[in-house]
């Protein structure tokens, strides 16, 4: 399993109801269904991923998250998860508001644009960062709203969002003492558990 998913699944209580926004091939949901008796749905709009979910026996609903989650009732899920999709949202702040409306708790992961490598790329080359982890050029990237950890935490303060847990990992999804020491510079992926 993808390492960020490995971390997330430990934050999810058994027998709870989960909504996974941008669920990919359904890996997290399948794991949680099998090992933690979690029930729930994945929301996805990539056709191959949808087919992969169906093959895995994961409940997947085709939907564009940007078009809204209004049909889902308030507080109808214990946890709403969104991994590595915040930066492709049209309005990430509104998506987070919706997640917090639907779920009692939310888990969000996103790439940190404040990582030293991204800063260095821009500072020294004068070009938008392209890396193995973020392989797109500026004109074809689906990642339209990059933020840093600091940006995200500022949003949380502005919107009265409580941060329950926070962890940062490098791109191999490993924790290490140095990423915790200076997360906004050294952490590549942020994982937040939030509520309101």
């Amino acid at each position: 399993m993808r390492a960020d998913l490995e971390i997330i699944q430990e934050w999810i209580q058994p027998h709870t109801r989960l909504l996974d926004l941008g669920c990919g091939d359904g890996e997290l949901l399948r794991h949680l269904t099998e090992h933690r008796q979690v029930t729930g749905y994945g929301i996805e709009n990539d056709h191959d991923n949808i087919t992969a979910c169906i093959r895995k026996g994961v409940n997947v609903i085709e939907k564009d998250i940007d078009e809204g989650l209004a049909s889902i009732e308030d507080n109808s899920f214990d946890t709403v998860v969104m991994t590595q999709a915040l930066q492709v949202m049209h309005r990430p702040d509104q998506t987070i508001d919706e997640m917090l409306r639907i779920g009692k708790e939310c888990i969000v992961t996103f790439p940190n644009f404040g990582h030293w490598r991204a800063r260095g790329y821009l500072a020294f080359r004068g070009l938008m960062p392209v890396s193995k982890f973020l392989p797109y050029t500026w004109y074809d990237t689906p990642n339209i709203h990059f933020c840093t950890f600091k940006d995200f935490e500022r949003l949380c303060v502005e919107r009265n969002i409580d941060i329950l847990n926070r962890t940062v990992v490098d791109n191999a999804h490993q924790h290490s003492w140095w990423t915790n020491l200076w997360p906004n510079m050294l952490g590549e992926i942020a994982i937040y558990r939030i509520t309101r």
Partner: peptide
């Protein structure tokens, strides 16, 4: 689909 989700039923939608 929305009614099925509300009813906590197993559903896939394409």
């Amino acid at each position: 689909v929305d009614a099925l989700v509300k009813a906590d039923q197993s559903v896939c939608y394409a």
